[in-house]
Amino acid sequence: MRPPASPGKTGWRGLLTAGLLATALVAPLQAAPWLDAVPRTAIVSAFEPELVLLRSQLRQPRVHRVGGVEFTTGRLQGKPVLLFLSGISMTNAAMNTQRALDHFKVRHILFSGIAGGVDPSLHIGDVAVPRRWAPYLEGVLARETAPGQYQPPPWMNDLVGPGFGPFIPRTVEVRSSRQADTERKAWFEVDAALLATAERIAQTPLERCDAQRQCLSQAPRVVVGGSGVSGAAFVDNAAWREYAFNTFQAQVLDMESAATAQVAYSNRVPFIAFRSLSDLAGGGEGENEMHTFMTLAASNSARVLLAFLAAHHD
């Protein structure tokens, strides 16, 4: 059998060119350049009604689009800011927070929006500013070994608290520049300096009635500290609400904050969230109250954020 013919000088040159072209096609893309060179505070909300008040007060707005998401630069309370919607749920929040960090010079991340109340001492309209957040639906659905008894895999040693039926919460794996190896975390702390500013503006006056004259049964207040939890489920269940409070000592639960907190932690960007109670996550009398008090709660959260922006100095 004859050996294959040598490609010769011209042939080698062609093969080399083809190889370089193939490498270029599969090589990772260069990081995108900054879309805006000004260091800014990112202000995030999950969906449109939560951003109405903030957008109405934004000065010098300029819109940028990345991957179908609208990012608006401008000034609030005299500070350079970046406003965008994360989208509802954990995946959207993580993805679009990282997009913001990849394309803009973000100095701090502030989340403003509504949440379900978990702590029985809180009421609809109150604004919670937790000191830490957990992705509490990270977990395992354990094997049922006897009726009503569940056993996780014996090698799973990172469980967090008791279970709810077969579900048992566990820590989440995190990669970041903080260390070479991955780490597992249950909680993501908010930035201490941002939390201190939140404590200074805790007396910010809040609205008790909305434009349709739907009023809360008592005056709302700002509560700084405690814990918040997030997961990819809308909660309207009294038993689950009680479980979240007892297991995590949670004040509020939502569907985005912990995901944004994890991205902020991984990128070493200071983070804090302002969440106003629109409902009691199944703990109220009758039907869920979110659509009744959503606008009022979102407005109260935005009011606290604006007071925070005015008071905070690096």
Rank of each mutant, 00 (worst) to 15 (best):
T145S: 04
G226P: 06
D36Q: 09
R213V: 14
V127S: 15
E70T: 04
R303H: 12
H123S: 14
V38H: 09
P153H: 10
E173N: 08
A134M: 01
Q151G: 03
G163P: 01
A196G: 01
V224N: 10
M90F: 01
Y136M: 10
S299L: 01
P169A: 01
N157P: 06
E256G: 13
A273P: 05
A128W: 06
V140K: 00
R13L: 13
T260F: 06
G74Y: 13
C209W: 10
S121L: 02
Q77P: 12
G228Y: 09
A146N: 10
D181T: 15
Q149G: 01
V118L: 15
V127A: 15
F234E: 08
S301L: 08
E144M: 00
A94K: 15
A46I: 11
G286K: 02
Q77L: 12
G68Y: 10
G165S: 05
V52Q: 04
H313G: 03
P205I: 05
L110N: 05
R170V: 04
T171Y: 02
A46M: 11
A298I: 11
R200D: 01
V81A: 12
R132W: 02
A261T: 08
G8P: 15
L110M: 11
S112C: 11
E50D: 02
E173F: 07
Q151M: 08
L21Y: 04
R143C: 00
G282Y: 14
